[in-house]
Computed example of a mutant assay.
Amino acid sequence: MSKALLVIDYTNDFVAEDGALTCGAPGREIEHAIVECVKEAVEKEQEIFFAVDLHEPEEPDHPETKLFPPHNLRGETGRELFGKVKELYESIKDRPNVHWLDKTRYSAFAGTPLQMLLRQKKIKTVVLAGVCTDICILHTAVDAYNEGFRIHVDQAHVASFNKTGHEWALSHFKNTLGAEVKR
């Protein structure tokens, strides 16, 4: 069974203490676990996708403009991967199994070539990591489910703004999407 790791939105704006839309300490607490799961995927020569939110400074028609402050702006440090995940990415980014995906919606599938790339590489299972559990991880999981991919989520690899949303999303992954959820 071939797997791909999707590291979603683990950027300064979503994780750093002073990030524009930070999920705070819960996001920083999963840093080591994400680094370890990326290293494991590298060792197993699995496909690894860094799916990163991308916004332009002026986007009056983008739906998120009314919901959230400006974040993950093109060319800004807030859009860079956070901490040790950035360091690790820099050391592996030239490998043929490591991919960067710009995304402009919550889901890593929306408006990106992700589905096509996974099919080309005969991937059957996606392993989700990053932030936020109840926003971008959730929407990516729903699209993965709708596209027929199996879903794995380790609670140690995802975080959110609040515990209630995080717990609800983990339950939804398992009970509604049939995901394998490690608690």
Rank of each mutant, 00 (worst) to 15 (best):
S91L: 06
D61Q: 08
H152W: 05
H157T: 00
P57T: 05
A144S: 14
H71S: 04
L81D: 02
N146G: 09
K122G: 05
E64K: 08
V98Y: 05
F149E: 00
E90F: 05
R74W: 13
E59V: 01
R119F: 12
H55C: 12
T77S: 14
V158G: 00
C136L: 04
W100F: 15
F50W: 01
D143S: 12
K84T: 07
F109V: 00
L67A: 11
G83L: 03
A156Q: 13
Q46Y: 02
E59H: 06
F50V: 03
E76T: 15
A110L: 09
A51L: 10
Y145I: 03
P57M: 00
L88D: 07
D53R: 10
E87L: 07
G148W: 11
S91Y: 03
C136T: 04
V153M: 07
A144H: 14
I151F: 04
D134R: 07
A141N: 14
R95I: 00
V127R: 11
W100T: 03
I92Q: 06
L81I: 01
G75Q: 10
Q120W: 08
S160A: 14
G111P: 11
P57L: 01
E147M: 11
F68W: 15
L101M: 02
F50D: 03
L114H: 13
C136N: 05
L118C: 01
K122I: 05
V126R: 08
D154N: 14
P57W: 12
T65N: 11
A156C: 02
V142R: 15
R150M: 06
P63S: 06
Q115F: 08
E80S: 04
G130M: 00
F50Y: 09
R150F: 07
E47P: 00
L54H: 14
N72C: 15
